[in-house]
Write a protein that binds this DNA or RNA. Structure first.
Length: 555
RNA sequence: GCGCCUGUAGCUCAACCGGAUAGAGCGUUGGACUUCGAAUCCAAAGGCUGGAGGUUCGAGUCCUCCCAGGCGCGCCA
């Protein structure tokens, strides 16, 4: 949080500088406050003078001196403020400031890190949204982990978040699903079937057919078309139930399961298209209806109604986003898509602009591929029997915690190699245990303290100035940085930043643990360090919760 | 052919709207447990950030071109 405090102080000074004519009235206030790589450059540094010098036509070092002079008197915050290099301002934070951090954490408890950044704006996150034609696979798992964690982080940052799953339960693939089940059912009855190549061939289809015959013994008395329809309805429900169960066991729940059918049945497609038509953005050509996507940055216009009169998938998506923004009134909408859909982004953005919305209100996060490895070897992703590809198998074999954590150790838009053997290992190669172990170690510490008859003290009851060694400050600084991490992860939509933060905090804790004793003969130190330990434990727990990973008391 | 993403240590990845000497883990080598959990810690070695230009006080980051890999370019979903 100190970074934020400094930032705000500098902003105030900018206004002052403008009044005094040191900075021009029109000035772009673009500058950063960040921890420098080199410790000798202080705890935090800012490039404000370098960034503004050009605009102000001033010498950067002189400008830096102007800012530095006006901040140095804040002795509650700074031990030293110096100018360095071409015009950086380096801040050496007062030890007292760091030592107060445990007080803040104790006061806020599990809300430490909560922000008002979102000002309770309505934001919708749509993710996974796999077609209900089969079980979720490893790639969906990544989308689920990223989407769900992002939702938790955004909520922490003060947004009113709604999580949604879009069910594509309309269209040809649904018909094929129905037929697949229907044919498998016939097979079960003893008929010899030549199963079509383009139908769903997975084992789960047979299971569904079996269940169908059990619940509807008179199934084959229906006319074929009706039977296929029934098979379709039955299969969608079965598969969707399975998907819901898988996600639930993966720690992911949704606020809304949105059926594509609604868009057709409640005429949102017509509504959305007439909205565009009134703006003159639709036209007819070759018997089809086109949307003028090229007027909004897409490379070409796109068909929304086929010559056959059928709406395209794109039309349904237009209607879906019409519903999100103009019917339900979300301020911001975030879609998580597989990276193979990236070509679709410009046309969807075109729709948003055509609706008269701001481009920033709609964000697409692309989730890159997951390559499945076993013992370092790339496994094929075919759905052959025995292949280890479904999310369910991953949860069962590897576990929810390790799976989620691994998915969050990469930026979403970078491809991920998922090594099953490695994910199962309980060693440093598997980073989830590193963080969990830090938490369990602290839990154990408090059990030990209790055994020794020491009640963990309140932060205001101990002498926090005893937290004065480099390793104390390393931890305190990281704890202070937790809210900044939440902010960065939320504004950049990058949940992996939190994962890396937790690894850093765990490292600092493990390091401390081997160098110092928490429980010792010296009661004053013992009490101060228990306060520190409690603060670390709280932040680890909050952080792990945000990742949807458990924070075990023992392991 | 056009567009998007990626290219950083042997391997897997970081690097916060351009910041100071590019950081971790794994692996390798060598070390640390009679004391709070060794699922831990410490140290060493390891780099022309794919290549070439450019922009500026300053580039892994921005621009142009090239190379390599992935993906996308339907009246499919």
């Amino acid at each position: 949080m100190i970074a934020k405090i400094i930032y705000q102080e500098l902003e105030k000074l900018c206004e002052e500088a403008q009044k005094e004519g040191i900075l021009p009235e029109q000035v772009k206030k673009r500058f950063q406050v960040e921890p420098p790589k080199n410790e000798a450059h202080g705890d935090y540094a800012t490039n404000i003078a370098l960034s503004l010098a050009g605009q102000a036509k001033k010498n950067p070092r002189e400008l830096a001196a102007w800012f530095a002079e006006r901040l140095a008197f804040r002795q509650d915050l700074f031990e030293k403020v110096e100018i360095a290099g071409p015009g950086f301002i380096n801040f050496f934070i007062a030890k007292k400031y760091w030592q107060r951090v445990p007080l803040e954490i104790e006061k806020a408890g599990e809300n430490y890190g909560a922000l008002e950044l979102g000002a309770q704006r309505q934001i919708q996150l749509e993710f996974v949204s796999a077609n209900p034609t089969g079980p979720l696979h490893i790639g969906h798992g990544r989308g689920a982990a990223v989407g769900d964690t992002l939702a938790r982080i955004l909520a922490m940052a003060g947004f009113n978040v709604q999580k949604e799953y879009y069910i594509n339960d309309v269209g040809r693939q649904m018909q094929i699903l129905g037929r697949s089940v229907y044919l498998r059912a016939k097979e079960l009855k003893g008929e010899n079937i030549d199963f079509p190549e383009d139908h769903y061939r997975g084992e789960y289809i047979k299971d569904i057919a079996r269940a169908l015959l059990e619940t509807k013994p008179d199934f084959f008395n229906l006319p074929e078309e009706e039977a296929i329809n029934l098979a379709k309805e039955f299969a969608v429900k079965e598969i969707l139930d399975g998907i819901k169960k898988d996600l639930e066991d993966f720690g992911v729940t949704y606020d809304v399961w949105f059926s594509e059918k609604i868009l057709h049945e409640e005429t949102y497609i017509e509504k959305a298209l007439s909205f565009l038509r009134e703006k003159g953005l639709l036209y007819e050509k070759d018997g089809a209806i086109w949307f003028k996507a090229s007027e909004f940055g897409d490379e070409k216009d796109r068909v929304v109604i086929r010559a056959s009169g059928e709406p395209t998938y794109f039309a349904a998506d237009i209607a879906y986003h019409y519903h999100k923004f103009l019917v339900r009134g979300f301020d911001e909408v975030v879609d998580l898509w597989g990276a193979d859909h990236h070509g679709y982004v410009p046309r969807m953005k075109a729709v948003i602009k055509a609706f008269g919305l701001k481009e920033e209100q709609f964000k697409v996060i692309l989730i890159q591929m997951v390559n499945l490895l076993e013992g370092g070897r790339l496994k094929s992703m075919s759905t052959r029997a025995g292949e280890f590809v479904t999310l369910r198998e991953l949860i069962n074999e590897v576990g929810k915690d390790a799976t989620r954590f691994i998915f969050l150790t990469r930026r979403a838009d970078s491809p991920l190699d998922f090594d099953v053997e490695l994910a199962k290992k309980q060693s440093r190669e598997n980073p989830v245990y590193y963080v969990q172990y830090a938490h369990a170690r602290l839990a154990s510490l408090f059990r030990k303290a209790e055994e020794a008859g020491i009640t963990p003290p309140k932060a205001n009851e101990v002498d926090l100035s005893l937290l004065k060694y480099p390793e104390d400050f390393a931890i305190l600084k990281l704890l202070d940085y937790f809210p900044d991490t939440i902010e960065a992860a939320a504004t950049k939509f990058e949940p992996h930043l939190l994962t890396f933060y937790l690894l850093d905090l765990a490292t600092a804790l493990h390091d401390y643990y081997t160098k110092y004793r928490f429980l010792s003969e010296d009661l004053a130190y013992t009490r101060a360090r228990l306060v520190l330990a409690k603060a670390v434990k709280q932040v680890l727990k909050t952080g792990l919760n945000l990742l949807g990973v458990s924070a075990p008391e023992r392991m």
